[in-house]
């Protein structure tokens, strides 16, 4: 019995093995072409990043010294330091982290666990995702209107912290919502089935599983707040400050503000000081992101 022969009860063959073999080479070539294309795209991104790193490190490392961390801003490049900006950024985080995480995680829990699935809530969900795409300058203007002027907080840490919190809130909400949604429904049902209230179920079943995802998302959002400049400029955060803030109502300056100021100065030496500042900022961000990675690895998915 030859295979090509039409047998009664055997279905008709539509694929001709010869033409499949003939086309095989062409298909493989196309595959190779696209693979190289995508590899080159990756290479471009890596190359740009490499050049950036090289320039900043070669320019800035010379200025990175103990004095750089101990000095305030100065007109003389050699005496310029990042102390006020670094401490200011830490203060900013001290406001942004609790405010944005409390509001963000709370909103996510409400939307995912308590809110009914109706049209209004769908609209809210959709708009939160859209808010994440609003330019940071717009949030700066919002902060200027509400916190700086209406609530008369001035250009304080509090005003800037609230503004930054609003800016990263959508990102935290979306990340927390996704983490909460990833918790399987059947363990919730197991909990409800034993007479647990919604709150007990959230605290004992949902959050323990969702917390790694929530924290990872929150930390990545916070590191965005550390690097953000535009809202601070709009709020009117000063650049040159010769004291450290003592409380959240004091004014302050932050790392990206300081870098922005140095980078726009005409003296060539200040370009190098700016690079040193960028190194500090990048180290700050890398540190935060590696905490996020650590958390993610430590609590591996258990489902």
């Amino acid at each position: 019995m030859r295979i090509t022969e039409q047998q009664p009860g055997v279905s008709k063959r539509y694929i001709d093995p010869d033409s499949v073999t003939k086309r095989m080479d062409g298909r493989k070539v196309i595959n190779t072409v696209f693979r190289s294309l995508f590899f080159m795209a990756t290479l471009v991104a890596l190359l740009v990043l490499g050049i950036l790193f090289y320039r900043i490190l070669s320019q800035g490392l010379g200025f990175l010294s103990a004095e750089f961390f101990q000095n305030f801003a100065s007109r003389i490049p050699e005496k310029a330091g990042i102390k006020a900006a670094l401490v200011g950024s830490l203060w900013l985080m001290a406001v942004v982290a609790p405010v944005s995480m409390f509001l963000g995680i709370g909103t996510a829990i409400y939307l995912e666990e308590y809110a009914k699935k109706n049209r209004i809530n769908d609209l809210i969900r959709m708009n939160i995702s859209n808010l994440a795409g609003v330019p940071s300058v717009v949030f700066g203007l919002l902060g200027l209107t509400i916190f700086v002027r209406a609530l008369a907080l001035g250009n304080s840490i509090l005003a800037a912290g609230f503004t930054m919190s609003l800016l990263i809130l959508p990102v935290i909400i979306v990340a927390a919502q996704e983490a909460i949604r990833a918790v399987p429904q059947d363990v919730r049902e197991a909990s409800y089935g034993m007479g647990a209230t919604k709150w007990q179920t959230i605290v004992r079943v949902v959050l323990p599983s969702a917390i790694p995802g929530i924290l990872t998302g929150s930390i990545l959002a916070l590191s965005r707040a550390v690097g953000e400049t535009a809202p601070l400029i709009v709020i009117g955060v000063p650049v040159i400050i010769h004291f450290l803030p003592t409380g959240v109502t004091d004014t302050f300056t932050a790392l990206p503000m300081q870098i922005y100021d140095w980078a726009k100065r005409p003296q060539a030496d200040f370009q190098q000081v700016a690079s040193a500042g960028i190194i500090v900022l990048m180290a700050f961000l890398l540190f935060m992101n590696s905490i996020a990675v650590l958390i993610r690895n430590k609590f591996q998915k258990r489902y």
């Binding site: 059947d186 049902e189 089935g193 034993m194 007479g195």
Partner: peptide, 19 residues
């Protein structure tokens, strides 16, 4: 419902222990 479910236990189709 909490009171009811305290008196009435449930076992589900797919084993669903907590992690």
């Amino acid at each position: 419902v909490e009171e009811l479910r305290t008196r009435v236990g449930m076992v589900f189709q797919k084993p669903n222990p907590f992690p």
